[in-house]
Design a protein around this nucleic acid. Structure first.
Lengths: 145, 145
DNA sequence: TTGATATTGAGAATCAATCGCAGATGAGAT
DNA sequence: ATCTCATCTGCGATTGATTCTCAATATCAA
């Protein structure tokens, strides 16, 4: 499998854009950990490694990463956007605890299949989906009792 | 089935809050049409009916409607929140065309079932889910060719 | 009617995200 | 190596949605 660096390079080349040191550093940091993150965290992590990249560039690069399909937006209920890198991972969905706000990833073939089937039924050529299941994890249930 | 008015009244009573004329008007307008809407549209519609309710009250009341379960937030990719009333409707998910941004609702028992099954598998007591399927509708596919 | 409490509206404040622009940088041509 | 020119970056200002503050108002219970 091509590395995310190659994928991003090619994506940029296709749009006649440059693979700059800033974009390279942001890409590397986004793929450095497998966790959801937001812009503030990403900037912090870059700072800690001595990278001083402006907020605007981080936003601009994230938009490119999303457009390239390497990164996905994750909707949180806290007023701003979060992200996760998805290249090289199976598609997954999120189980979200309404108590502690924790998020567990899961994969489920039946959901993948449902996407295709529902798409066919409505004459949609589907490209993907986003499923969030809400509930309460064991700890939060016990806390409530 | 109890009307949405009764449900909201009870919800407010439970929290020792009042069913004011403003809240009544907003509730009525939210349920007047079955379409996704955003705050701006809602205020516009209220204005056209002679209601002059402040933006702050609309936001505050919408939060209450969401908390009461009568209304659901719908994530759009246009930078602000959209809503739909859900009381009295089966739970449904959204098929979203990436071309024309149109949204089609659908219901699917397999998805409901998947929610339960996945919840059991992860020791989550599920309360609901949100599924968006992305793709291209027929019109947009034909346009691209 | 009175007092206690909840609610509203207006505008200020907040905060994520975007924009505009001047100067910096990079890739290819010479 | 230098020139050229389009692309990029960083800064700071701006936008725009949403929330907050607070004084004035409305409601409920006694």
């Amino acid at each position: 499998m091509r590395s995310e660096v190659d994928v991003f390079r090619e994506f940029l080349a296709h749009k006649e854009m440059r693979f700059t040191p800033e974009r390279e550093a942001i890409l590397a940091e986004v793929f450095a950990e497998h966790d959801h993150f937001d812009v503030e965290e990403l900037i912090m992590r870059l700072r800690q490694k001595g990278q001083r990249i402006s907020r605007a560039s981080v936003y601009r690069t994230l938009a490119l990463l999303v457009a390239s399909g390497l990164v996905q937006e994750v909707f949180y209920e806290d007023g701003h956007m979060h992200y996760e890198h998805i290249y090289g991972h199976d598609h997954h969905c999120h189980l979200r605890c309404l108590g502690c706000r924790s998020i567990v990833e899961f994969r489920d073939p039946a959901v993948e299949e449902a996407e295709k089937r529902i798409g066919r039924g409505h004459d949609f050529a589907t490209t993907g989906h986003r499923l969030d299941i809400y509930g309460y994890c064991r700890q939060c249930r016990e806390k409530k009792e």
